[in-house]
Computed example of a mutant assay.
Amino acid sequence: MKAAVLYAKNDIRIEETAIPPLHSHEILVKVMATGICGSDLPRVMGDAAHHYPIVLGHEFSGIVEAVGDGVTRIKTGDRVAGIPLKPCFACHDCRSGNFAQCQHYSFIGSRINGSWAEYVAIPEINAIPFDANISFEEAALVEPSTVALHALKLIQFQGGEHVAVLGGGNIGLLALQWSHILGAKTVTVFDIDDARLEKAKLLGADYTVNPNKAGADDLWRQITSGKGFGVVLEAAGSDVTIKQSFELAASKAKVCLIGTPSRDFSFSHKQFELMNRKEFTLTGSWMSYGSPFPGHEWALSLHFLKQKRLNFLDMIDRSLALADINEAFDLYRKPGAAKGKILLYNS
């Protein structure tokens, strides 16, 4: 099969490699669509890969090509979305149903070979079937959808709140959509990129705010009648937006950090004191998994896709053949050139 193999920083090669053999509990998936995640960028363009060589890719969908002898639930020909986490199922966290906190996990597409290939082998439990009225492109984005939904479930979101989403990237746009589905009063998306804010409007944002423009503070205070936001979802992982989340939060708000910081930063004592004074609840959110594995987020994402309540297609900037993967990363190296999710497909 053909695979995009990462050998070193900025060194992806399309090569012929062996189709992975199956263990009895595994299935072989012919990859039809696979995404490039924001977490893949530092693995390719930086030094964040766990080892070399490695086939990345953890957002994917495809058709089951073959099944192992011990497989009972999935059959050849099924359309499936891939679940990348491989927990040990034996440690304390796994036994408690906290699979994202597994002490001995592996991960398809970062620790072991993933979906930037024609085929990927995964455990049967890591496949979730979907109907023919959901496209492979949509199904490839179920994984990031579950990440956004998990954050809202984690803070026990009940609806009826003004919600602020900080960062208009893919996770932010999914958090926007899930906030509306779950009953937000309004959703306001903050970003310094006006093109991202336009995409947020297309996907249902009630308001958009560019913090670098005059009047931004007046606008969000007007939206919330000066009280601040009852729910703040930080989806950029930036020191600026994390600090901003403290400022935007209302008294007794819920603040959830979904984005992953890539550098050290510090708070002034006045900034940090906002958490004490407002007594807001602050938590992080990591991946998307719950009990029973993989968690309700996965079935809910497919349900609302089928209901046409989630819009993934307008999040996609373009689809490229797997053989053109380096062209995709050329776009990521030019600030603003990629206007959304880039998907790869096998021709």
Rank of each mutant, 00 (worst) to 15 (best):
C88Y: 02
I83H: 00
C88L: 09
V64Q: 06
V80Y: 04
V64R: 01
C91R: 03
R95V: 12
A66R: 15
G68N: 00
R79N: 13
T76W: 00
A81D: 02
K75V: 10
G70E: 10
P84L: 11
I83C: 11
A66T: 02
C88A: 11
S61N: 09
C91A: 09
T72Q: 14
H92D: 15
G82T: 12
R79S: 10
G70S: 14
V64I: 12
R95C: 05
E59G: 08
R95W: 03
L85M: 13
L85W: 05
A90V: 14
G77P: 02
T76V: 14
C91T: 01
R95G: 08
G70T: 02
S61T: 08
C91H: 08
C94W: 11
K75G: 12
V80Q: 01
D78F: 13
T72P: 03
S61Q: 01
A66P: 01
G77V: 10
I63Q: 09
D93C: 15
I83N: 03
P87V: 06
G77I: 09
V67Y: 00
D78Q: 01
G77W: 03
P84A: 08
I74R: 03
F60E: 04
L85N: 13
L85R: 07
V67L: 05
T72W: 01
E65K: 12
G82Y: 07
K86G: 09
T76N: 11
R79L: 04
A66M: 10
C88S: 04
A90E: 13
F60A: 15
F60Y: 14
A90L: 13
V80T: 09
A66Y: 02
I83A: 09
E65D: 15
R79W: 00
C94E: 10
I83S: 12
G82K: 11
S61H: 01
R79Q: 12
C94H: 02
H58K: 00
I63G: 07
D78H: 11
G57H: 00
C91Y: 08
F60I: 06
T76Y: 06
L85I: 07
A90S: 15
